[in-house]
Design a protein around this nucleic acid. Structure first.
Lengths: 209, 209
DNA sequence: CTTTGACAACCGAGCGCTCGGTCAGTAGCG
DNA sequence: CGCTACTGACCGAGCGCTCGGTTGTCAAAG
């Protein structure tokens, strides 16, 4: 049942999966258009023509990356939201779910976020549709917290959602898993900043902790 | 003394300036590598070969855009910081200066932020150096507010700075000058979220304003 | 007022190269 | 034998860039 059909002699992970992961990495680092099928096949250890046994085109590869990215983000957030009831707690959990997904698969999500524009036609429409559906979940969660009076109503749901996604999405461009900040720390940072802000309340001495 | 040497018959703005602005727009919308010198020259209304009278290469064009972008951001922030004394007021002013610059020249700054990776060698090093020098200004401003006890010390200066830039930088990807939110509104949104957070303090009724 | 020459700005043809993609064929396994 | 996985030789298109030449403008010379 385990590996080893055809000519494959490499590690157990199927070539198709390795292709997706390696392509995502290359697209994130160099960009979609600057990445070549030659480099990619070399990194995989196969010939360029063999790529087309697994995917139908370079565009198809990007499309699959985007779909996989959005599926994982949405799954992570939905899992984080399950069994959480309070409106503020739900915002909190949503942020954690989003950040966890982001930091676990940086290559995938960074590629989706910045290279989506390279897609065209139906593939683009479909991915944009998926993204919009995900953002609707975020928006609804924010809206419910506003209606419950726990999130400010000074700004519209739209505005607050944008501020939230701004804070969360840029992370993958600079985050390094080797850095001093682990995912937990990032999670705490963003949740605190978005919810409480960075200002120390007046009349408080330093180091509130 | 005013315009009109050579074959130029078009609007008063010099071709070199129009080139930079149009290239920045094209790079932002399509990406650097997906943009062709043919499209660009067509948009400018000149022949492809004529581009090389104004710039030495496509890379050179990107380099100039990045330099111009960072110069403008830094100038805008330094102007906003001039004559502002209080540590918290300085953070506030810095955010306004950054956002104002961002939203005024979206094409330039978005290109710099996402296409910097397409540069190589000395040009890349130089732009990265400029960016680091700018971020040092931001970091110092944050650090001074922390030392004064007005910004939280629960997170390091590095962490707070990243959260701040996260919030501010992603904006240019979705901001539209035709939308309902003007620059002033965005400015207020981000300043409020970063400093006070989005949560309504316990024991407060809705609509604090 | 005309001539001349230097120069800025631009043109058109085209070159060398790399790219994504094709296709007939083949090795290894069940 | 058939299927999966892969190969190697090969396109045609489009890319960035070059180069010799041309055109319009201004300043000084005659």
């Amino acid at each position: 049942m385990t590996g080893g059909r055809g000519r494959r002699k490499r590690a157990d992970e199927p070539t198709a999966d390795r292709l997706l992961a390696l392509a995502a990495r290359q697209f994130r680092v160099k960009g979609f258009h600057a990445s070549t099928t030659r480099e990619l096949s070399a990194a995989l250890g196969i010939e360029k023509s063999s790529l087309y046994y697994h995917v139908s085109s370079k565009d198809d590869l990007l499309y699959r990356i985007c779909v996989e990215s959005l599926n994982r983000i949405q799954a992570s957030v939905e899992e984080a939201l399950a069994d959480v009831d309070g409106p503020l707690e739900r915002v909190d959990a949503m942020m954690s779910g989003h950040i966890a997904a982001m930091l676990e698969d940086r290559d995938l999500h960074a590629t989706m976020l910045v290279e989506l524009r390279a897609l065209a036609g139906e593939q683009r429409d479909e991915v944009v549709g998926m993204r919009d559906r995900y953002e609707a979940i975020v928006r609804d969660t924010v809206a419910q917290a506003q209606e419950a009076g726990v999130l400010t109503a000074v700004f519209t749901t739209h505005e607050l959602t944008l501020a939230l996604l701004n804070l969360l999405n840029w992370t993958i461009f600079w985050y390094s898993p080797d850095g001093v900040d682990g995912a937990d720390r990032i999670d705490e940072l963003f949740r605190t900043v978005f919810l409480q802000g960075a200002v120390v309340p007046a009349g408080t001495t330093r180091e509130p902790a």
